[in-house]
Nucleic acid binder design. Sequence first.
DNA 1: ATGACACGCCGAGCGTGA
Length: 265
Amino acid sequence: MRRVSRPFRVVTWNVNGLRARIDNVSAYLAEKAPDVLLLQETKVDDARFPKVPFLELGYRVEAFGSGGYAGVAVVSKEPVTDVQRGFAEGPPDQAARILAVTVRGVRIYGLYAPNGTKLGSEAFSYKLAWFRRLRDEIAGRFAADDPVLLGGDFNVAPDDRDVYDPEGLRGTLHVSDEERAALADLCAIGLVDCFRSMSDEAGVYSWYDYRHAAFQRRMGMRIDLLLATRPLAERCRAVVHDEAPRAWPSPSDHLPVEGHFDWPP
DNA sequence: ATGACACGCCGAGCGTGA
């Protein structure tokens, strides 16, 4: 009896406040029913995390949040093991940005990278250092043929195809050479941007500013990513940026980004 | 463009995001 590969759908979504978005997230889950949903910017501490809507939809929840800032969660149909909150080693991070679990044999990191605030600021240095620390953790703990998936809001647009106005925005936050190098250094240890493994298309975005009617004007950036090691990336069948929830009432400014895999191989 | 728009903070503007 050979192992039969099945659809394995993993979604990353920065919801910008889970309590403000719980109806949207519930509606999305009821409609799309992914296997795993990675949430960022839940902005809620674990004791106040709204678990019931997820349980009612047949999902398990692991949460990692502190107060009304940052915060991540992993929602899964299947059991999760080896739950890790924050970096695996060293001093605790200054915010809840990392939640790692194992599902169906895949090590999945749900990530909310620092924003960086302003080039040259202390927050910007922290952002670059956070990427180095993440790279070192992944490089130190996994081999290239381990199935590892990093999904989340990376707060970096990987290249000019990923921003609506690459000339006008050159060198600004999310688009700077330093940030792109930090992301490239992470990918260089053996991670593939799943969307880019499927498509060269420009103008596919995961975030649209609330201001300036940016969504209607297609002024966005692709900063929410699924990065996979080769065995998993080779099993990627599609990456879908679902624009529908961005048009719902009271939307998040980010789209859910859906990775479709055949897994296990 | 010091703006815009939205969150959570605990009850009002403010810090923060992207």
